[in-house]
Design a protein around this nucleic acid. Sequence first.
RNA 1: GGGCGCGUAGCUCAGCUGGUUAGAGCGCGUGGAUCACAACCACGAGGCCAGGGGUUCGAGUCCCUUCGCGCCCACCA
Length: 903
Amino acid sequence: MTTLPKTYDFKNTEERIYKMWEEGGYFKPLNDPNEPEHDPTKKPYVLTIPPPNVTGKLHLGHAMFVSMEDLMIRYHRMLGIPTLWVPGSDHAGIATQLQVENALREEGTSREEIGREKFLERTWAWKEEYGSHITNQIRRLGASCDWSRERFTLDDDLQQAVREAFVRLYEEGLIYRGPRLINWSPGLKTAVSDLEVEYAEEQGKLYHFKYMIALDQTPEVSDAYIPVATTRPETILGDTAVAVHPDDERYNKYIGMKAIVPILDRQIPVVADDYVDLEFGTGALKITPGHDPNDYEIGQRHNLEIISVLDKHAKVNQHGGPYHGQDRFEARDNLWADMKAAGLVIKEEEYIHQVPRTQRGGEIVEPMVSTQWFVDIKPLAEKALQAVRNGRIKVVPERFKKIYYNWLENIRDWCISRQLWWGHRIPVWYCDDCDEQTVAREDPTECTHCGSKNIQQDPDVLDTWFSSGLWPFSTLGWPKDTPDLQYFYPTTMMETGYDILFFWVARMIMMSLEFTDDIPFSEVYLHGLIRDEHGRKMSKSYGNVIDPLEVMDELGTDALRFTLLVGSTPGNDMNLSLKKVEANRNFANKIWNATRFILGNLEGITAPKQDNPGWTLADSWIWARQRSLKTTVKRLFENYQYGEAGRQIYDFFWNEFADWYLEIAKLQLAEGGDRAFYTAQALVPLLDTCLRLLHPFTPFVTEELWQHLKEATLKSPLSSIAENWPEVLMVAPWPEPVDTEGWEDQAIADFTLVQNVVRAIRNLRAEKNVKPGTRLPATFAAGAATPIIESQAETIAALGKLDASRLSIQESLAAKPEDHIALVVGPVEVYLPLAGLVDVAKERARLKKDLAKAQSQIERLEKLLASPFTEKAPEHVVQAERDKLASFKETATKLEEQIANLS
RNA sequence: GGGCGCGUAGCUCAGCUGGUUAGAGCGCGUGGAUCACAACCACGAGGCCAGGGGUUCGAGUCCCUUCGCGCCCACCA
């Protein structure tokens, strides 16, 4: 009697198993460099987790990378390689700060009100309270990270790493500070990098108006003007030129003259610049160097004045004349109305254009001139390009290399300062007395230039991605030369979503090459994004968000993991539906029940009388199939085709092992004696291998079952099989492919014939509505297959519900039995006495249909074999086709006989 | 404006280096409480692999092209 419940109860399993693993120390790497017996020549497999936001909540993106990385780690661990997966979390500057600010707002206060120091205290408290949520949720997914090495981007060590990185770049002249046009987020009141700005097509307006030429310069025409169009009229307030194309005959007569800014009446030059597109819009351009990146560049070329007209709230400042104090959109309307009144408006038209919004806050980004810190990134980018170009870093799927190259080749300096409070404070101190900067690894007490104590640290913090860029080596101890860094660095694999290729992957490569003079990892695997079942983005407003925690609660972690792993192909998005997870929950249950069956049968097994297994055809077949599976899975794993590998194992387990072999094993076990023993002797390693192969995909159910299997095996006469098994499945050796021994193909071919005979019988029974309980006698004319059919008679009888005591098996029959329905399966004819059910007309039709199928195949194959195919294709391919032809011919002949016999 | 991906059964998707009669899950139809599993079993229906052209003995797979959908990058007022 088995003690296992009828269905897999993941709720009662997952936590217990995870605890067992963690307490057993199995998440820690073998060959730890901090231990005395460490062998530095053993190459480890190392993966660093993409750190989730410390106060974030688990979403499917996390579930995806945890599943995938855990698969990679568990696989390599089972290969016996020292394996390290470094976990941790990111302080996530803006995201976390916003959460705390929201909390403060609910309390009726704000960060400005409580001040920087109090605010940081609050945020740390928030981090302490919620920071463990995300890591606990990652544990629930089964992540086998080494939690003893967990890191947080604001840990002291990592702060030190950030300092070191900043100071080094500064010393090398690769960090500079200065006024530049940057993307300003008026809501967050901080600068953001180019990457943090998202463009979306939106309906807007294109405003056409007149740029009047100053009267004294065109005395002959009193109303000379250049027509100009803009989508942002409020920027008119900051215009410092009007640009026309030098070859534009309409306007080039005005070049060098002055135009008058509407309402403000400032005079600005008309300049010539071939950036202006003659064909587009009015063919003339207003130039606002203070609020537009293109205009900024044109401004540089023509030495134009830069006027900022907006403050940090995006309200019009003192340069905006009558609009001072108005919000940018309010000013837009008011200015336009005033211009209309002044007769300067030509028209406004509906216009769809790209609107920049911040990734976080969502409001429209304002290009503004602001003094910020920048990284001179080109020198770093050059090395990062090299590392991928020369193959030191491998990218999977390869097509992302092109995207990576394109981005790095056109990269622009990286604005790294943020006007936030939560993050790594910029390690620069300004001297009130001599105005010099002190940049230091340790907090200075005085100015290094004049010794003054009147120094103030820069109030800004660094872009979150600055510290994330150091992650693979900062987590291992850099800048200290720790044993971990020496042994585990460079890491092996970086697995993440393709959406952060630029944000993160490229920056890690750049910073690693710069600071460690080495690559951060040798492989990059990019997975796709997860969408809903119809391919739509998951979003709260659609209401189509799937919460992985709920899925795990309802269907189990293994089901979710298997779905994510098997449903995706590298780099491609996947559509997730709960139906799929349900199907995989069923699969977990299938594994459960198959094991349950085997365990139940181990109990009655007794030691064999004879030392000779005498393997059955089914035994040989399933062995051969599993050997082939191991080879296939290995190949697929080596090619990063994890999903396909999972599908192969699934198919083998369900369709071959459970549906066919276990059904036959029942018969063999029922025979008792040695047959039962040897069947069990096959079942245990077969199941063991399946559980091992499945373990990286579905760790919980496989570990749980394997523990039971191990226990039951050790208690049985088969204990020697399990003698050397380790304590837990997660460190059990991976089933490596073995060389074929020559017998496999024949076993597979023979068993396939048995399957086809059984299927044909079942099919006919179903078609003729034979009652499920009815045991039919049968006559076989098996030709060359007679030995197989004879030896497999009992199996065929059991699976096809034939009466085993009334079977007649012969090579050929002198006369066809009457009132029988005949089935033709390759060389085998099966006669079933369905006298009452024989409808001659229907029978003829059925046989003719089969014959037609066979004949069309014969025709196809004869044509094929008469073509150059025979000479050009490899011999085994040709032979396979010849064999097929022979088999179809045999079938056709038999079918013809049957048809003739009917009448 | 550049670049990339996708288009295979009613739905969601596999199909790796080109080599049987193209697969799975769900859905659909028929039958089934058989002692692992009804979260199951057996049987079945359902596909000019988006269209066209090419390379090849052989193309869902490689190349070109058209159409449709999606995404990324880019400074067009």
